[in-house]
Simulated assay, not measured.
Amino acid sequence: MSAHSSGRAEAPDDHGGQYETRTVRPYAVTGGRVRAAGADLPIEALVEVLPSAATATGLPPEKRAILQHAGHTFVSVAELSALLRLPLGVVRVLVADLADLEYIRIHSSMPVSLHTGQSPALSLSVLESVLNGIAAL
């Protein structure tokens, strides 16, 4: 590995070339958050960039990279993790942040609510109400 004056190091990749390694720790990328605000995105969830992302300014490099990769085609959360060389948990937080900003739309086979973290049909209060209704019969 060779060090550069920018504080970054380069390491060989699988194809004999060089890639830049990160000097920023994953917890710094997410502001110390380990979970997205109320969202637990499945790894197979697809990310679609919305037209509002064209006016996005002031985003950190990782969020810009997500918009760039998903701008051409739908990309899964797992694929984004691999493309960005970031842990899956970090990418989940960043994707949820971009969805909150309405720069992306998340497509999933399971309903994803970014505010409650789960489908309303799976909430405990709904299940208790159904059980009480059945018991009343």
Rank of each mutant, 00 (worst) to 15 (best):
Y27C: 10
S76Y: 03
G71K: 01
D14R: 15
L94S: 08
M110K: 14
L84E: 00
Q18H: 13
G16C: 04
L83F: 11
M1I: 09
G89K: 02
L83E: 05
L46G: 05
S109E: 11
L131Y: 15
E10V: 05
D40C: 09
S119V: 04
G32D: 00
R85T: 09
A11P: 08
L94C: 11
L86Y: 02
Y27S: 10
I43K: 10
V24N: 05
V95A: 07
E20V: 14
S113G: 10
S129V: 08
V24F: 04
S129R: 13
R64Q: 13
V24P: 05
R33N: 05
A45L: 03
Y103T: 01
V126S: 09
S81W: 03
I134K: 14
E79D: 15
S125T: 04
A56T: 06
T73A: 09
L98N: 03
S109M: 10
T21K: 05
S125Y: 04
S108P: 04
I66S: 02
S108T: 02
S81C: 11
V77T: 00
R64W: 12
P26S: 03
T116M: 10
G32N: 01
T55W: 10
L88S: 14
P120W: 00
I43F: 07
R35H: 11
A56S: 12
A135T: 15
L127H: 08
E102W: 05
H69D: 09
T55P: 06
S129A: 15
V75A: 07
V77Y: 00
A28Q: 08
E20Q: 11
L114P: 07
Q68R: 13
L41N: 00
E128Y: 10
S5P: 08
G133M: 12
R85L: 15
G133T: 04
H107Y: 09
P26W: 00
D40P: 05
A9L: 15
